[in-house]
């Protein structure tokens, strides 16, 4: 089966913090990494390939530095890495992003399955997977935690919801987004690392994928960020002093006053 895995390069979100004085992000020393959810997507693609045969392609959109992320995909065992990079793609929201990815998938040609991580940790929207499925005109299942069976026509996947696990039969070609817990991503092997170092990551421009200029990047994005602020969540906290016994007694009486005890 031919599998396309979409990956994104993101700042290591746990390292990002805000400079309290200037209200801006401190970016120095923050590494770019592959979106953690995408690692599960790559791993699941590789496992399906190993079980059913075929090829895994990794696809990303981003600045030229994102080649490193595709190389990481190659070093895990993907056959081909494609980066969509073009100044015209800049400023894309999830709609423009899924349009762009869809154009690239169509250029790749035949596929059986597209796998995306459930969401990217920098944007946290979980939009691109379903939106891409729509643009490709294929069905999708979100939040897949297990794949039970794959045939040429369909796959049976288990998705996770707030209170249940649901077994869904999805006709192929289709798209799934995967959750943490679906697998344990492997470490790159020497063989695939060498392969990655020796495989050229293809870089496609807007022209290469035949994208309509009005549908990519900022122009193709209906949404627009108009303001960035630092979250204000200050409360006038009351410090409870004294030895532990007093602190606790004080707290209890305060909570009773406010009728939560």
């Amino acid at each position: 089966m031919n599998i396309i895995v979409c990956v994104k390069q993101v700042p290591d979100i746990l390292e990002v913090s805000v400079d309290k004085e200037t209200n801006t992000l401190i970016r120095e020393g923050v590494d770019s990494v592959i979106n953690p959810f995408d690692l599960y997507a790559v791993e699941e693609g590789l496992r399906l390939k190993e079980q059913y045969g075929g090829q895994v392609y990794v696809l990303s959109m981003g600045p030229p530095q994102a080649i490193a992320t595709l190389r990481q995909g190659l070093s895990l065992g993907a056959e081909r890495g494609i980066l969509l990079s073009d100044i015209g793609f800049a400023g894309a929201d999830t709609l423009a992003t899924s349009y762009t990815l869809a154009k690239a998938v169509k250029k790749i040609g035949h596929f059986d399955l597209v796998i995306c991580g459930r969401q990217a940790v920098d944007g946290d929207t979980a939009h691109v997977g379903p939106s891409l499925a729509e643009k490709l005109g294929v069905p999708h299942v979100s939040c897949v935690i297990k794949i039970h069976e794959v045939t040429e026509e369909y796959m049976i996947a288990e998705r996770i919801t707030e209170d249940a696990k649901e077994k869904v039969k999805l006709s192929l070609p289709g798209l799934i987004t995967v959750c943490k817990g679906i697998n344990e991503p492997r470490f790159p092997s020497l063989k695939w690392k060498i392969n990655a170092a020796r495989t050229r990551v293809e870089v496609w421009s807007a022209h290469d994928i035949g994208a309509d200029e009005s549908k990519i990047g900022l122009k193709g994005s209906p949404t627009r960020v108009v303001k960035m602020t630092t979250p204000q969540h200050h409360r006038a906290g009351q410090m409870l002093e004294g030895p532990v016994g007093e602190q606790v007694a004080d707290l209890v009486s305060k909570l009773r006053e406010r009728q939560v005890l």
Binding site: F187, S189, L190, K191, W192, I194
Partner: peptide, 12 residues
């Protein structure tokens, strides 16, 4: 051999 020796993929 690199890292884990028991895997053919880690032999060069």
């Amino acid at each position: 051999t690199a890292d884990t020796a028991d895997d053919d993929d880690n032999v060069l």
